[in-house]
Design a protein around this nucleic acid. Structure first.
Length: 936
DNA sequence: CACGTCACG
DNA sequence: GACGTACGTGACGTGC
């Protein structure tokens, strides 16, 4: 034993949960769920095969009762019981350690984390080093001085730099930060109102938790200061809870943990019983060929990527692209500075029939940004960056750069080549950047988009950003953008990043995009998402690009008038508000308002938020107003104007182009249901419900000689409900074109349809909406301003009349529980991650999401289908002056020449109504006018 | 940055 | 017996 010991400590308990959630469900030959066991087995096999470390142990939690629960009974007390499919796996994982002949260690009263900490300290005292196999943030305090961590699933090392990136402080100060911010998952209280950013800032400024607490009284008066003083004890308790014990008596001495070979027969036997034969092969202990082992590993990588197949069911590995997809280095990139060099890359792309393209810009708005360069990837690991407009300095000149026009002329034939697939990550952005640079976006094709390929299969499961997808599918963390430009006041424009450095980042992005395509595109078919992607998401990119580029005209003068009007009226209201309050204060501050209403004026009916502040939202103020108080009425009115001015009139004026048009950005891969979202500015939430708000819509106009057309689906989600739940009465009502809310009222309250009174209809309408949202008595009661008990009697009456809807809801919940996702009628998968939550509140929330998703998502599918078909349909009808401008979930807005307005309205109506064949008719209502307010 | 609030479907 | 709830978004201002 001349070598210094290197002890590998596996966080067994942490791994179980992580693997259970990360891996797709799978079962042993006997039908026992084993996905976490499978992940654990692979991880152990890899450690042994690669001879990581001289000593090895797996640590487990022994019991729920620990010194932490003794000093703080709530510690982890609210933790849900493990899911049913996980419970049998705890024992199996201990069997696995035995089969591998690895010591499995646990000690009553201590968590695995404390054992790990104590072993780490012990081995360090012996002059050895230690690797902790875990991604648990609570272990990060141990990193440094011979101790490092390794993420067991992503295979990424976690060193001091990674810890500092996560917590904003070096490892030795992690506990202080954790004590301040608390940890809701473990019930560590922390200090309310202090999140990760504030916590690390405080620790960096003052040093330790105690330093922060003792400095608190001297801080500027603030909520933060008060919270620090008030919750100092909670913070000290939190510090005890998060600090790992390093003095646990070691059940097995380090010397007895030296790595030993497993008994091959014992191991093989056990692996056989679990159905994990392939693991032996992969360890180099089996008799089958290495090629087979490689394929098996590939197949299981995909099983986890698509979240569906199990190794037992996995088809013989699909061929998914080049062999070096995951292994090629992400470093060998070329900076292209000459026409000849660029032509070589273009030819290589044409040869391959496939390339990834990425653009670099000086801003995030593709319609105004300048393209600083672009990158191409033609095979895994093979990529280049073409700088075009980088700025050098005397000390660091950029070197030769291709003239932008020259480069674009060389690139254009590739982008327009029908025989070469161009892959982008978030294609719409790059298409608009290229468009702005001089290549018509509509001429570029064929185009694939890895973001949408992923979104089509995994909406709601995880984000669709490139870095996240890369970590997930390629086990690779791309260079962060901030590493190029720096952050804060040291940030430099991307154009000033030295060209060779920019190449490492930009070319890597194209490389990653191409590799993601190789991994993700084949899974579209196995996940039954190919049609959805090909027929809805992929063609929508060009449609939305055209809409964003076109923008919508606004009447700047009208917006300015409104802004002035709102401002004047707010000014006029201020004195009256101060008088009613008894003093001057900032009306826009909920905190100050709450103090006045509930502390100073002593009004009743206050609720407090989670940081302890009084709630003053409109429902609270409306309650107070109904009690006859004056101040809340005035504030409500003031707030409405303030909202309209700041969020709409002023903000829109700022974002209007020289041509008086506003260009939103539609996000295609954000929502969990398949809807679009709109931002910068958000044009999907322009006011319409109040008279004052409608005045904003009047400022959205068609230019002279043109008209706006609004076309919106009537009751599309209720129609979908009638269809998917197959409710004869609802279907009949839609067939007959009846007022659906009145018909519901008639059925549920058993009164004649004729002469339905407005209040009863309003109640039925609220019930109908509630159904779509996955109704709860509390929610319906709140909406209608009636007690939950009364609301419950409505719901009972509704379900008694429509038992099919209750059946549908149960069916959907069962589907969500079985698969982890639900499907829209068009096959879009909407993941519902919380469906197995132990906490009833969170589980019921997930159940409501599951009920709502097929309806909201189905409606999103239908309007997307219409949007994809419309441009060609309008063109074929000779309606060439029509432009689609906006989508607002169930409404499309067009701009068209006066002469074609009527025809476009009719065409849009017929295409939209034919976008899906349901068992109930789809109905679209259209309006033609000069402003959006009147067209709607 | 955390929070409260409010605009839309 | 207590708890905390209608579904999906984005943007603003306050008070740090």
């Amino acid at each position: 034993m001349t070598d210094t010991p290197h002890l590998v400590l596996v966080d067994g308990s942490g791994f179980i949960f992580r693997a259970f959630h990360a891996l797709p469900p799978m079962t042993s030959p006997e039908g026992v769920p084993v996905n976490a066991v499978y992940g654990f087995t692979n991880m152990l096999a890899r450690l042994l095969r690669d001879h990581v470390g001289t000593h090895l142990a797996v640590l487990f939690d022994a019991s729920r009762q620990t010194f932490r629960s003794d000093i703080y009974p709530q510690y982890k007390a609210h933790r849900p019981e493990p899911p049913e499919d996980l419970r049998p796996q705890f024992g199996l994982i201990r069997d696995a350690t035995q089969a591998f002949n690895v010591p499995g260690i646990e000690l009553p009263g201590w968590e695995a984390d404390d054992l790990i900490a104590s072993y780490a300290v012990a081995v360090r005292k012996m002059g050895g080093t230690c690797t902790i196999i875990s991604s648990d943030k609570d272990l990060m305090q141990l990193v440094g001085q011979g101790v490092c961590m390794l993420d067991p699933i992503k295979q990424t090392p976690i060193g001091p730099a990674e810890v500092e990136a996560k917590f904003g402080v070096p490892p030795e100060k992690v506990v202080d930060v954790q004590a301040l911010m608390g940890d809701p998952t473990d019930n560590v209280p922390g200090v309310p109102g202090i999140g990760p950013k504030t916590a690390s800032a405080l620790i960096n400024e003052f040093g330790t938790l105690e330093d922060v607490l003792s400095a608190a009284p001297e801080m500027k008066k603030s909520k933060k200061r008060d919270m620090l003083i008030e919750h100092a004890q909670a913070a000290r308790l939190s510090l005890q809870l998060v600090t790992l014990a390093t003095d646990v008596p070691l059940p097995v001495p380090v010397a007895d943990l030296s790595t030993r070979e497993p008994d091959k027969l014992v191991l093989a036997d056990w692996l056989d019983s679990m159905g994990f034969r392939s693991v032996l092969t992969r360890m180099g202990m089996g008799s089958t060929s290495g090629a087979h082992a490689h394929r098996a590993a590939r197949a299981s990588a995909h099983a986890s990527a698509n979240g569906q197949d199990t190794p037992a069911q996995a088809a013989p590995a699909p061929s998914t692209g080049p062999a070096d997809l995951l292994s090629a280095p992400y470093t060998e990139y070329e900076t292209v500075r000459t026409a000849e060099a660029l032509q070589k890359w273009v030819s290589a792309a044409q040869e391959a029939g496939l390339c990834a393209v990425d653009t670099e810009t000086d801003g995030l708005d593709p319609l105004s940004a300048t393209m600083l360069g672009f990158s191409l990837a033609t095979a895994p690991g093979k990529a280049c960056y073409v700088p075009l407009q980088h700025e050098g300095t005397l000390e660091a000149p950029t070197g030769e750069q291709l003239a932008p026009d020259r480069a674009l002329d060389l690139l254009r034939p590739l982008l327009e080549d029908d025989s070469v697939l161009k892959v982008f990550q978030n294609a719409k952005f790059d298409l608009l950047v290229l468009d702005h640079a001089g290549i018509d976006h509509a001429s570029i094709g064929p185009v694939d988009d890895t973001m949408l390929i992923s979104y089509s299969q995994s909406a709601g499961l995880h984000g669709q950003g490139m870095d996240e997808l890369s970590a997930l599918h390629l086990n690779h963390t791309p260079i962060p953008y901030d590493a190029m430009t720096g952050t804060g006041r040291n940030r430099i424009p991307f154009a000033q990043v030295p060209v060779e450095k920019a190449t490492t980042y930009a070319a890597e992005d194209a490389d990653v995009t191409l590799r993601l395509w190789h991994v993700l595109h084949p899974t579209l078919r196995t996940n039954h998402a190919l049609t959805l992607y090909e027929q809805m998401e992929r063609p929508l990119v060009q449609v939305l690009a055209a809409m964003e580029k076109c923008g919508i005209a606004v009447d700047r003068a009208e917006l300015t008038r409104l802004s002035t009007d709102f401002e004047t009226r707010m000014k006029n209201m201020e004195q009256g508000i101060y008088a009613a309050a008894g003093r001057e204060f900032n009306i826009a501050s909920p905190r100050q308002l709450g103090e006045i209403l509930f502390d100073e004026m002593g009004l009743k009916g206050g609720k407090r938020g989670k940081a302890g502040a009084w709630s003053t939202d409109s429902s609270v103020l409306q309650d107070l107003a109904d009690q006859g108080h004056d101040l809340p009425v005035r504030v409500l009115e003031w707030r409405q104007l303030a909202k309209l001015k700041s969020t709409y009139t002023d903000a829109l004026l700022k974002q209007t182009s020289k041509e008086s048009r506003v260009h939103t950005s539609f996000q295609m891969a954000i929502t969990t249901t398949g809807r679009l979202s709109s931002s910068d500015p958000n044009l999907q939430n322009i006011p319409v419900r109040t008279e004052e708000g409608t005045r904003i819509r009047q400022a959205f106009v068609a230019p002279a000689g043109r008209k706006l057309i609004s076309a919106d689906y009537s009751q599309i989600e209720l129609r979908l409900l009638a269809d998917v739940a197959n409710i004869p009465t609802l279907r009949e009502a839609f067939e007959l074109g009846q007022d659906i809310h009145a018909r519901t009222a008639s059925e549920v309250f058993n009164i004649p349809l004729e002469g339905m009174d407005a209040l009863t209809r309003r109640r039925a309408k609220a019930i109908n909406f509630g159904i779509i949202y996955g109704i709860s008595a509390f929610g319906l009661g709140k909406q209608l301003g009636i007690p939950a008990g009364e609301a419950k009697s409505y719901i009972d009456a509704y379900f008694a009349r429509y038992p099919g809807i209750r059946d549908y809801m149960e069916r959907i919940k069962a589907e969500a529980r079985a698969n982890g996702y639900v499907l829209t009628p068009f096959g879009r998968r909407c993941y519902v991650p919380g469906i197995h939550e132990k906490s009833a509140v969170r589980r019921q929330y997930a159940e409501r999401q599951a009920i709502n998703a097929p309806l909201q998502g189905g409606a999103a599918d239908i309007i997307k289908r219409a949007m994809v078909r419309l441009p060609a349909a309008l063109a074929a009808a000779g309606l060439d002056s029509a432009r689609m401008l906006l989508q607002v979930h169930d409404e499309l807005l067009f701009e068209v020449d006066d002469a074609q307005a009527q025809a476009v309205a009719e065409k849009a109506k017929s295409i939209m109504e034919a976008a899906a064949q349901l068992s109930v008719p789809l109905v679209v209502e259209t309006g033609i006018a000069q402003t959006w307010a009147e067209a709607h």
